[in-house]
């Protein structure tokens, strides 16, 4: 095969084809519900892997010595900030999960109200997150 020159244009064209979805026949529309679903999946995976770590930590901290030693490490501000991140992830998954239940059982997925419901959910999520995060930030 004869090398086509300049190759960079061909590579760029291939990348643009991929971006426009012509190769994969998939084009993300970034619909409100898709964004909510994507975050729900990411936060869900983060939470189950957090549960594995959390359970392992509690199992291995059964004596006063090991517990006190671990708490001394966890008092570090880095872990306090990570803890607020955990609340962000958990409260998102909880509030959006409730919205999913409402779309399934309470008619919250009609064409007329679906997108609006997602925006209402973002407001409720913000309120829940801030309400829980303020006392955590005060303790920093």
């Amino acid at each position: 095969m004869r090398l086509q020159f300049p190759c960079i244009y061909i590579v760029a064209e291939r990348i643009m084809d991929w971006y426009n979805g012509r190769l994969h026949h998939i084009q993300y529309k970034w619909h409100e519900g898709f964004v909510a679903w994507l975050f729900h999946r990411i936060t869900g995976l983060l939470l189950i892997f957090y549960l594995f770590i959390h359970e392992w930590a509690i199992t291995t901290l059964q004596t006063p010595e090991s517990f006190t030693k671990a708490i001394a490490v966890l008092e570090n501000p880095v872990f306090k900030v990570l803890e607020i991140g955990l609340w962000l992830v958990a409260s998102y998954h909880a509030v959006n999960g409730l919205r999913v239940v409402l779309t399934n059982f309470a008619g919250a997925a009609e064409r007329s109200n679906y997108k609006g419901n997602v925006w209402i959910f973002w407001v409720i999520f913000a309120i829940v997150f801030v309400a829980g995060a303020i006392p955590m930030i005060m303790k920093l």
Binding site: T68, I71, W87, A94, G97, L98, V100, V101, F105, P135
Partner: peptide, 27 residues
């Protein structure tokens, strides 16, 4: 869906007990 709604209640209980209720120090 059922376990999710149950977890909503359980997690809120867990969160408030571990962080705010009678918190005199993590001993």
């Amino acid at each position: 869906r059922v376990s999710g709604v149950a977890l909503l209640v359980l997690l809120l209980g867990h969160f408030f007990v571990e962080h705010f209720v009678g918190h005199t120090g993590l001993t």
